[in-house]
Design a protein around this nucleic acid. Sequence first.
DNA 1: CTTTATATTTTGAGTTGTCAAAACGAAACT
DNA 2: AGTTTCGTTTTGACAACTCAAAATATAAAG
Lengths: 223, 223
Amino acid sequence: MLPSSTVENYLKALYQAESSRTGKTLVPMGQLATAVGVAPGTATTMVKALAESGLVDYEPYVGVRLSSAGAKLAALVLRRHRLVEQFLVEVMGMSWAEVHEDAEQLEHVVSDRLVERMDAMLGHPSVDPHGDPIPTADGTIVAPDYGSLLTCPLTVTVTVTRVTDQDASFLRFLEKQDLKPGHALEVEARDSAADSVQLRTASGRQITIGTQAASKVLVQESS
Amino acid sequence: MLPSSTVENYLKALYQAESSRTGKTLVPMGQLATAVGVAPGTATTMVKALAESGLVDYEPYVGVRLSSAGAKLAALVLRRHRLVEQFLVEVMGMSWAEVHEDAEQLEHVVSDRLVERMDAMLGHPSVDPHGDPIPTADGTIVAPDYGSLLTCPLTVTVTVTRVTDQDASFLRFLEKQDLKPGHALEVEARDSAADSVQLRTASGRQITIGTQAASKVLVQESS
DNA sequence: CTTTATATTTTGAGTTGTCAAAACGAAACT
DNA sequence: AGTTTCGTTTTGACAACTCAAAATATAAAG
Ligand SMILES: [Mn+2]
Ligand SMILES: [Mn+2]
Ligand SMILES: [Mn+2]
Ligand SMILES: [Mn+2]
């Protein structure tokens, strides 16, 4: 039985929750419920069904984790989502700020045929417009472990590699400030009292953003 | 409330059932149920709900017909379906024989934004790869009323304009025989005893097909 | 005008996914 | 330990969609 859109959404949310988590701790129910956008009790019910199908491991009152079968399925959903986003930007000329919602629906219906065609047309990209890594067709994912504007070294040129937030207005803001993946900049200073980070772009412009925002912009030291 | 995929499928099936029907007779339940692929009782239940929502007019034991609101919605589903098919063929390079299944899913999730972008990218096509007319964004549809290989004049050059069957193997057959929309040919003879129609393509090749098949190939006299 | 055949509707039940609110377990405070 | 707090699970209910099979209406045939 092929997974429903609902099941795919739970697995994908779980995959992403596990990724943004230190160690191999289980994901607590509440977090999963929030991520999926559902009441806590609903998540419990669903997770029990997923455990029954062997897609997750579930420990009552502790949390839940993807099984290897579940992880593979989740990676394939993520592959579809990200290839669709890359396609919508590169081929359809849509903005990186507005493709997420479309991909959120399309990820459940694009056929393997269509996905592989998009992949080929795009030249087998390794990342999507937000820098998120695109899993391969067999469910393998290579996710370099970048630092953020909060953790990278100061006064050193870095390149934006990934943005871990899909909020359209945030993405539009980054675009306007030349902070899309690929752009170079350096972190001039951090002020924990002011809760801010001061940046200077390649063009010399200076920008100050909050630490919450800074933590969502991942970078790599320019080589 | 936006219509579910299920509702969209019922409306679309009804629209198509009405089109292939002489006069403004109501569509009988059984036919709708078959078209949607559901048990008769299921169709009855659904149609009552649709009537409640004002999308159809329902006369028990007689049949059902789209209201103007229902017809408009159906036309928009058809627009999405057909634009997607055209897109998959023209942009993605897929075969006209295999796009229907993909479109059947995509028609329910492509956003207005995406649809209009595809439409623009395709140069606002008036028909899809099968010659089916593409409704405009306001739900208007212009469907010229073509004859078929069964009804067109004999020994006169005609051009294929439309194929009213989505079966992949039938479409592959037509393609191999140069009977895709746009190709010219003439009907040499019809043999009602043999239940067959004899054609000659522009390249001079002679083909004999059954009347069932012939009725599904619509043509226009070449001007 | 009856009887029979056919199409349609009703009924009863099941599946999937959801919520609100009550019950409960584990952990944190006093 | 006793108690409050917080997250989690259970319970009861509901919405959307579906089927099989019984009941019924309509149409056709005798
Ligand atoms: Mn996304
Ligand atoms: Mn992305
Ligand atoms: Mn089609
Ligand atoms: Mn078509």
